[in-house]
Amino acid sequence: RAAQGRTYGNLGNTHYLLGNFRNAVVSHEQRLLIAKEFGDRSAERRAYCNLGNAYIFLGEFEVAAEHYKRTLQLARQLQDRAVEAQACYSLGNTYTLLQDYERAIDYHLKHLIIAQDLNDRIGEGRACWSLGNAYTALGNHDQAMHFAEKHLEISRETGDRS
């Protein structure tokens, strides 16, 4: 049964990489079921994240957000800060796709704080870029400028010319 769980996970990932997002969802749902049977929260966390990603490419952003929220809860329970940051970043981007910029900002700020704690300058740069765009969408140009300047500073530091 444990091997079946891992295989469903691998199968889901392969469907995803091939662009078969519906089949990816079916496999990852099976993986999730087995992870729950075993009380394997790491595997559960991976399944929720993979499901969220697949729903993004199916254009079902609300469903994706729900799966990313479960990923975030589990990352916090497992005390995995890097994964927590990644889940916040995914949620920020998903809410941007949903044009809910206030919520997007909440999650991008959460991502920014963790990136700073972890000394992840690339993550911090991405958070600033995203925040600049979300504030622009809201018409808050002062905040947009603040984050654009931070993004420029970090991009120079990391040598990211693009």
């Binding site: 991976r46 399944a47 994240c49 993004i56 490419f57 941007t96 991405r126 969408a137």
Partner: peptide, 26 residues
């Protein structure tokens, strides 16, 4: 103020490009 219906957010597009080949491996 009225918002534009469709926005092209470059940071989101970049995220989706990365996401397309990102999987949580067993």
């Amino acid at each position: 103020p009225q918002r534009k219906h469709v926005i092209q957010v470059d940071s989101v597009q970049r995220w989706m490009e990365d996401l397309r080949h990102m999987t949580e491996v067993e």
